[in-house]
Structures are given as structure tokens and as C-alpha cells.
């Protein structure tokens, strides 16, 4: 009676195969890219975070050293910046308090990544980098040039910093530089 009107719902085998093939290709590509992306993302993120932390730390230290002043007896002026493996200290002029006060940077080396913190005068200690420091060395570099007259001094702080992410086996982010406090040097040379 109505046999010619019957539709058959369903997929043919060909259709399914084609769809599977296409979607498989698609999904495979997508997954591969995704994995790559995720890896790349986490790597970039780690590097980016480490880079930002080191940049902020160096900028903070640079600003502090730009504000560094000579204070105390003039015989000690060449030892104004004191650097020990775990501590860096010097004096700055704080316009907020209108006086010269000490600034101390503390480095605590820990097996899973060290910690870097800063303290100004009697205020609380603020952590700058937490658990990311693979190694840190800072060294006061005092140069003396034999220029006519009594010679010229130049003080710099050589920093070698390596940061690494908490987990992962990537290479650590390393930065090595020397910071020269210009105003301090100018004062030193005009004594």
C-alpha cells in the first residue's frame, strides 16, 4: 500500500566511515596542536613568570642602588655596599622619612628553590621571589683607575641570578649583569 513512501533513517556505512575519517583527522590534528600548545604554554608561562620576577627584582634593586648614599666616616666609603652570600646591605636616602636608612636584601638558599626578600629600615620583610631561586651570587666590584690626580673609583654590584620553576626539568632562567650606582660613584669621586 505505502511502501514507496517509507524513508529509512540511518547512516550508510560510507557516511559513517567518511565522517569518522574526517573527524579522526581533525581531532588528531587538534589534539596534537593542543598538546603542543599546552606544553608550549606552560613552558612559556614559566619562562615568562621567571623573567618577570627577575626583571622586577633587578628594577627594584636598581632603584635602591640609585638612591644609595655615602654615609658614615669617609674612611669607610669604599665599603658602603656590603655583600655577603646571604645578605646585601647599603644605605639609601628616603625622602618619605627625610633621613638615611639601611636597606637589606636577604637570600635564603633552599633545596627546592631559594627565597629572596627585602627589608627597609625597621619595616617588615617583603618577599620578592619565592621558591624560584636556583642560585644567586652578588659581589661588590670596586675598580680603581689610574687617572691623573688621585685616580678614579667605580663601584658596581655584579649579580648572577638563576631562577627555575618549582617543577619541571627545563633549563633555569639565568641573567647576569652589573649594576653601577651613578650618584654614589659621583660622590665617591668628588671626595
Amino acid at each position: 500500500m505505502k511502501t514507496s513512501e517509507r524513508r529509512v533513517t540511518g547512516f550508510t556505512l560510507t557516511e559513517i566511515l567518511v565522517v569518522c575519517a574526517v573527524s579522526a583527522t581533525f581531532l588528531a590534528t587538534a589534539i596534537m596542536l593542543f598538546t603542543n600548545f599546552r606544553q608550549g604554554y606552560s613552558r612559556s608561562e614559566n619562562v615568562a613568570v621567571l623573567m618577570q620576577e627577575s626583571a622586577l627584582f633587578l628594577a627594584r634593586l636598581r632603584t635602591d642602588l640609585n638612591n644609595a648614599v655615602l654615609s658614615g666616616p669617609s674612611a669607610d666609603f669604599l665599603r658602603q655596599i656590603q655583600a655577603a652570600p646571604d645578605q646585601l646591605s647599603f644605605n639609601v636616602y628616603s625622602s618619605r622619612h627625610g633621613r638615611i636608612q639601611p636597606v637589606v636584601y636577604n637570600y635564603a638558599a633552599l633545596p627546592d628553590g631559594g627565597r629572596l626578600s627585602r627589608r627597609e629600615a625597621n619595616e617588615g620583610e617583603r618577599v620578592l621571589i619565592k621558591d624560584h631561586v636556583a642560585s644567586l651570587t652578588w659581589q661588590v666590584q670596586l675598580e680603581r683607575f689610574a687617572t691623573p690626580g688621585s685616580g678614579t673609583f667605580r663601584i658596581g654590584l655584579a649579580i648572577d641570578l638563576q631562577l627555575k620553576a618549582s617543577l619541571g626539568k627545563e633549563k633555569p632562567f639565568a641573567i647576569k649583569t652589573t649594576i653601577f650606582p651613578a650618584r654614589l660613584n659621583r660622590q665617591l669621586n668628588s671626595r
Binding site: 615568562a48 623573567m51 641573567i175 649583569t177 650606582p181
Partner: peptide, 25 residues
């Protein structure tokens, strides 16, 4: 990210060079 890292190193090197020159009399 890589470009930013190169830029950061270049910037740090530039500061190092600039500061050592202006520290001189």
C-alpha cells in the same frame, strides 16, 4: 616569549653599559 626574553637581556645589557659610563667623572 622568546622575543621578550631577548629584549629583556638587551635592555639589561644596555642599562649596564649606560650606568657604567655615567658613573664616571
Amino acid at each position: 616569549i622568546q622575543v621578550t626574553e631577548s629584549e629583556f637581556r638587551a635592555h639589561t645589557a644596555a642599562l649596564e653599559l649606560m650606568e657604567q659610563i655615567i658613573s664616571l667623572p
